[in-house]
Structures are given as structure tokens and as C-alpha cells.
Design a protein around this nucleic acid. Structure first.
Length: 639
RNA sequence: GCCGGCAUAGCUCAGCUGGCCAGAGCAGCUGAUUUGUAAUCAGCGGGUCGGGGGUUCGAAUCCCUCUGCCGGCUCCA
């Protein structure tokens, strides 16, 4: 007999060799029907795999990430089976589950797949799924595995096999398709009811741009058709909210082929939005002791040689600008920190002055590969809500905690309630990529970990994601559609102060080296605006939106009353405009609705006579009439 | 940068396999209408079919190239 422990602490005894499926069944038929995989002693297993020893067990269904991953990974195999059936001779790379669905990298030889082929592949997948083929696990010797794929002439699988040890190789087979795979898989194909091939794109074999580009097919599957429909609706909604579309419609920003790719141009409405964003943060920062500065958009090459950025990014940057006579070399400012280090270093500092917090909405320019550019979220010129805090080592934690507090405060202000953070540390196997001493790195990494634990921030840790000069904490928000976006960042840096030989005079009258914190709660104004547009679908918070209301006169003769309403509201800091076109009221309402202006104030004979205004709320319709005083109060309560 | 796709009026799009002066709706302009909660009516103007080169008797349509955009990959101080 073996002893099985459950997550709730319960224990039960089963015969040795019992499977997770049988254990689930012993608990309830319903569970047995829904379980897709199970963690056995922390490893995700097929539920048909016999358990030979005492174990802890956790069942995975569609409702948890491991269950979905198992389902989608099995779907990737189904996709591969369909592709092999339709296009014999296809070679296969890897086919993992991803956050939403799965993909499979395939090599079709000279054949080019297009979206026209998706329907055919989907039909084949559904046909194969209905056959209720079991996913059969088998352990295989390395020699046999190699022989199998040599016979198939699949160099990709052979290369994968090179990295595996004899004795740990498993195959999975369903229907006519056999794959090298660690597993686990769902019991059989029949639970895959809804299938969609989403897109096709090129992807380098093993992510290496020097290697062959394969065809990557993305797909998603669900146990129920209804869930697929809902997912596709969500994708539609995301398309509607695309900040590139809304940004153009609401005249927030534009791009110009002549100005250049990746160089956003802020239009008046967008500038109004951005200025409010900046003012909000500026005020909050002044409360917290930040000192605003302004630095130039270019700097001498030596500045970036000193900072180490030139060595690290020089080749991959916009190349230096040369002065015509003197032959000096300037770089477009790719970050603000070297300038701020110079500000710190321009005169001696006493420990009594620290921390010194230097803030700047600094516009920076970075070369991004042309294929990387994407709306406002990936650009070549952008403005960071940057600041650098210079402090003593024993002030680091307190400063870090204040920045954490500021960042979460800022994100919440914009309705991002679901905030997590990623701690990016060094790659332990590749430490030569980074500059600075082991001791300083350890200190910096520890500071981040401790501070996030202290405030109870939900974090994930990624090795190898640190900046070259220090570890990072990146904030990740989930928007209204549940999509993740990386926004603000905090970085601890012992290295730049050293490179710029920054000092302060301590209580002991000796020079000491300050620690530096880089931080940007929004990240960049461009990216933040892009994410905010998608989050709120262009319906900005009332305090932020460029026009809070539009006054719609019923006819031209009501314009004088409209003007008086406008000026009265302006006295209460309610901003907007009068739609004085000679158009029907229906037309004015429609146009205002489409511009997503929060309030429409309709004024005609009735209103002029009673000195009231009729209120219509965007997306909600007529709200009845009220006096201006009543409206101001109502409005202010919504701010 | 790489793979694949796309580029026709300010916007959304039609124009099949090369062949009558390149079209529509919306927007714009002009005029009429003075309007009560999501489009008043009529008329008019507007495109070197992304740029350049080529094939052809003839190119928006085929080929090459550049630019930009889209989906990915790689990259992201």
C-alpha cells in the first residue's frame, strides 16, 4: 500500500501502482471527469501514470494553470498530427503550451502556409480529436529514439535528443503521431472540443537568429465551444481597444513617415492628457522631496563611455553626431542617469543632504530594430518619468520602500488594481555580462528582495533579466481585459556612482560612495498612455480627459446661453467646449458620443427659461436636468 | 535586422486572372434647413493607386527595389 497526501492535509491509502485518475475517481466521479493532470510530489504527471510510492498529490483541472497547460500542450500534439496528415514530410521543432494556447514550430520545406490553410487544419484537428485517441506514454532508449527520428529525417528532434540523457527519454503517441516529449498529457483527444488556429509567423529554431527560421503555428483550444467563442470575443474587444486605433480616432498622437518610424508625435488632445499625467506625478514627487531638473537631449560620447553604456550599447545605438569643425562626438541621450550623475557630482555633498532625489521627464532616443516598433509601446523616442535617488547605503531600504509606495499609489490612481512585480536578477551562469563587484550586486539584490517582502508585494523572480549595472524590479499590471503589461521600474545601482566617482562626506569627515536608485513609475509617458488607452478603451478618468463635457445647443439661438454655462462651469474648473455647428441635436449627440466625451450638456428653450441644463452621460444616456450648482456638485463627486 | 503579409481620396473599403475617363460611404466645402437625446437634405471639390525603376502596344493590377504599416521571431540601458 502507498500513502497519498492531499492539499487539504488529508491522507489516504491506495494499492501501489494506483493512478491519479483512479485516486480522483475514489473521491468523486465529477473530479475524475474534470482532472487533466496531477502534480505528484511536485511534478506534473499524466493521470494514467501509476504511482508506486508514498506521494503528495494535487489535481489539475481546466481551472488552474497547470491543467490548462496540459490541455494545450496535448492540443499542440494534435495540431502536429493534423499538419503531418495534411502535409506529409513536415519536420517538427518544439510545440509548447503558452499563456493563451500553444504553438508548434514546424519546417514545411518549400511550402508556405497562410491563413487560408487554417480552416483545413482546424477541421483535421477536430476530426482527429473525435477519434478519442489516447496519449500513450512510453520510455524509450536514446538509441531507439535516434533511430526513429533518423528514419523520419527530422533533424530538429535529433538535435533535441542530443541534449537528453539515455534513460530519461519518453515518447508520446496519439493516433498516428509520435513525438519526443516529456509530457504530461491529457488522457485522450476527446476533451478537445473547440479548436482555432490563430496565426502563423516565422520563428528562429531555438530562438537563435543565426539559425533556420521555421514556421510557427499558433492555436488555442477549449473543452467547450462556448469558451472559444468567448475568447474570440475578447480578442475582438482587444482589437477595438487597440491604442493605435483609438489614439488616431481621438487625435491623441500620430506618426509621420517623414518624421520617421517609431517617433510619436503628440497632438493637442494627447498633449493635454500627458500634461495632466505629468503634473499629477510632479506634484506627488515634490511632496516626496524630489527636485525637478532639465538636461540636454544630447551628450558627449565620453559621458556614455564613463557610464559604460557606450561599451554595452554603442554599436546598437544611433551613431554619434559629429560637430563639423571640432570633430566632437555627441550621442542622442539614450537615458538620463549619466546626466543626473553629473548634476550630483557638480559640487561636494554632505551626508546631511542625502538622500538627493533628482527628477526629470527626460526624453530619450534609442535605436530599436525596425521590426520591433509598435504603436506607442515600442518606439525610438520617448519620455521617461525618470528620477535618480542618491543616498547612503543605510538609507537604501527606506528610499526603496518609498518608491514602491509611490509606484503602487500612481498605478492605483489610474485604475490598475492588479499589480504584481518581477524581480530581475543576474544570470548566475553568466556573471561576466554585468559590471560591478560581487559584493555590491549581492547588496542590491538583497535590498530589492527584502523591500518587496516587507510590503507584501506579489512577485516573481527571473534570473538573467537584470540590467547590466544592477538588479531591477519591474511592475506588471493587468488591464481591464486581463492582459499583462510591464510599466514602471525600480533599479538599484552601486555601479554608476563608482564610475562617476560620486561621493559624499560622512559624519567621519571621510568620503563615501552613495548608492543610486533609478526609478520611473509610469516607465515612459508613451507606453503608459498606450496601455492606459487600452485599459479604459479611450474613456479616460474624468480628471484626466481633455474635454470633460460638451455643451450642445439645440439651435443656434441657444449659443449665448451655452456660452454662459461654459463660463460658469469654467469657474469650477470643469472644462469642455460648445458644439456650435448648425446641426441637429441628434447629430451633435452622436458625434460627441463617438468622441467619448464624458458629459453632454444639452441646452434649449426649456433650459434657458428654467436656468437648468439637461445632462447626458456618455454611454448611459439622458440623466435628466439640474441646475449648474447641482451639476457642479454631482460632477465633483465623481472626480 | 529576419520570416510572412499589407499599402487605392482625410478615414473605411470596392476595383476578378493587365485593357472603356479609378469608384462608394463617411469626413470636407457650399447652400438650404434652426432642429429636444446616437447620422436633415441637396450640390461640389478631392487620388502622379506609398516612392523609384522595369516588363508590356497598354500597369492600380506582373517583376525588382526603397519607405511605412501589420503578425511573429530576435532585441530592449
Amino acid at each position: 500500500m502507498i500513502k497519498i497526501s492531499f492539499p487539504d492535509g488529508a491522507q489516504r491509502e491506495y494499492a501501489s501502482g494506483t493512478t491519479s485518475s483512479e485516486i480522483a475517481k475514489s473521491i468523486s466521479e465529477g473530479l475524475a471527469r474534470n482532472v487533466l493532470s496531477a502534480s505528484v510530489n511536485g511534478q506534473v504527471w499524466d493521470i494514467s501514470r501509476p504511482i508506486a510510492e508514498d506521494a503528495t498529490i494535487r489535481f489539475h483541472t481546466w481551472n488552474d494553470p497547470e491543467g490548462k497547460a496540459t490541455f494545450w500542450h496535448s492540443s499542440a500534439h494534435l495540431l502536429a498530427e493534423a499538419v503531418e496528415a495534411l502535409f506529409p514530410g513536415t519536420k517538427f521543432g518544439i510545440g509548447p503550451a503558452i499563456e493563451n494556447g500553444f504553438y508548434y514550430d514546424i519546417d514545411l520545406g518549400d511550402r508556405v502556409l497562410s491563413s487560408d490553410d487554417f480552416g483545413k487544419i482546424e477541421d483535421k484537428m477536430k476530426e482527429l480529436a473525435r477519434q478519442k485517441n489516447a496519449y500513450i506514454r512510453s520510455e524509450i532508449s536514446k538509441a531507439d529514439a535516434i533511430a526513429y527520428f533518423k528514419d523520419k529525417d527530422d533533424e530538429y528532434k535529433l538535435e533535441l535528443l542530443e541534449g537528453l540523457n539515455d534513460g530519461e527519454i519518453t515518447f508520446y503517441q496519439q493516433g498516428g503521431f509520435t513525438d519526443l516529449c516529456r509530457g504530461p498529457h491529457i488522457p485522450n483527444t476527446s476533451s478537445i472540443k473547440a479548436v482555432k488556429v490563430l496565426s502563423v509567423a516565422g520563428a528562429y529554431w531555438r530562438g537563435d537568429e543565426t539559425r533556420k527560421q521555421m514556421t510557427r503555428l499558433y492555436g488555442i483550444t477549449f473543452p467547450k465551444q462556448k469558451e472559444l467563442t468567448a475568447y474570440l470575443e475578447m480578442l475582438e474587444e482587444a482589437k477595438k481597444r487597440d491604442h493605435r486605433k483609438i489614439g488616431a480616432e481621438l487625435e491623441i498622437f500620430m506618426f509621420s513617415e517623414k518624421v520617421g518610424a517609431g517617433l510619436p508625435i503628440w497632438l493637442p488632445k494627447g498633449t493635454a492628457l500627458r500634461s495632466r499625467l505629468e503634473d499629477f506625478l510632479k506634484q506627488e514627487q515634490i511632496k516626496r522631496g524630489y527636485q525637478p531638473v532639465i538636461t540636454p537631449h544630447i551628450g558627449k560620447k565620453e559621458l556614455y563611455v564613463t557610464s559604460g553604456h557606450y561599451e554595452k550599447y554603442g554599436e546598437d545605438s544611433f551613431q554619434p553626431i559629429h560637430t563639423p569643425r571640432e570633430g566632437e562626438e555627441f550621442l542622442l541621450k539614450p537615458m538620463n542617469c549619466p546626466h543626473h550623475c553629473e548634476i550630483y557630482g557638480h559640487r561636494p555633498h554632505s551626508y546631511k543632504e542625502l538622500p538627493i532625489r533628482i527628477a526629470e521627464f527626460g526624453t530619450v532616443y534609442r535605436y530599436e530594430q525596425s521590426g520591433e516598433l509598435h504603436g506607442l509601446t515600442r518606439v525610438r523616442g520617448f519620455t521617461q518619468d525618470d528620477a535618480h535617488i542618491f543616498c547612503m547605503p543605510d538609507q537604501l531600504k527606506e528610499e526603496f520602500l518609498d518608491v514602491l509606495d509611490l509606484t503602487t499609489y500612481v498605478l492605483k490612481k489610474f485604475g490598475f488594481e492588479d499589480v504584481t512585480a518581477q524581480i530581475s536578477l543576474r544570470d548566475p551562469d553568466n556573471k561576466e555580462k554585468y559590471i560591478g563587484s560581487e559584493e555590491n550586486w549581492n547588496k542590491a539584490e538583497r535590498a530589492i528582495i527584502e523591500a518587496t517582502q516587507e510590503v507584501g508585494l506579489d512577485t516573481v523572480t527571473e534570473l538573467g533579466e537584470a540590467a547590466f549595472y544592477g538588479p531591477k524590479l519591474d511592475f506588471i499590471v493587468r488591464d481591464a481585459l486581463g492582459r499583462k503589461w510591464q510599466l514602471g521600474t525600480i533599479q538599484v545601482d552601486y555601479n554608476l556612482p563608482e564610475r562617476f566617482e560620486l561621493e559624499y562626506i560622512g559624519a567621519d569627515n571621510q568620503p563615501h560612495r552613495p548608492v543610486m536608485i533609478h526609478r520611473a513609475p509610469f516607465g515612459s509617458m508613451e507606453r503608459f498612455m498606450g496601455v492606459l488607452i487600452e485599459h479604459c478603451a479611450g474613456k479616460f478618468p474624468l480628471w484626466l480627459t481633455p474635454d470633460q463635457m460638451a455643451i450642445l445647443p439645440i439651435s443656434d439661438k441657444h449659443i449665448p446661453f451655452a456660452k454662459s454655462v461654459k463660463s460658469q462651469l469654467a469657474q469650477h474648473d470643469i472644462r469642455g467646449y460648445i458644439d456650435d455647428r448648425t446641426e441637429s441635436i441628434g447629430r451633435k449627440i452622436r458625434d460627441t458620443e463617438l468622441k467619448k466625451i464624458p458629459f453632454m450638456l444639452i441646452v434649449g428653450d426649456k433650459e434657458a427659461e428654467s436656468q437648468k441644463i439637461s445632462i447626458r452621460k456618455q454611454g448611459e444616456g439622458d440623466q435628466g436636468s439640474m441646475t449648474i450648482v447641482e451639476f457642479v456638485e454631482y460632477f465633483n463627486n465623481l472626480l
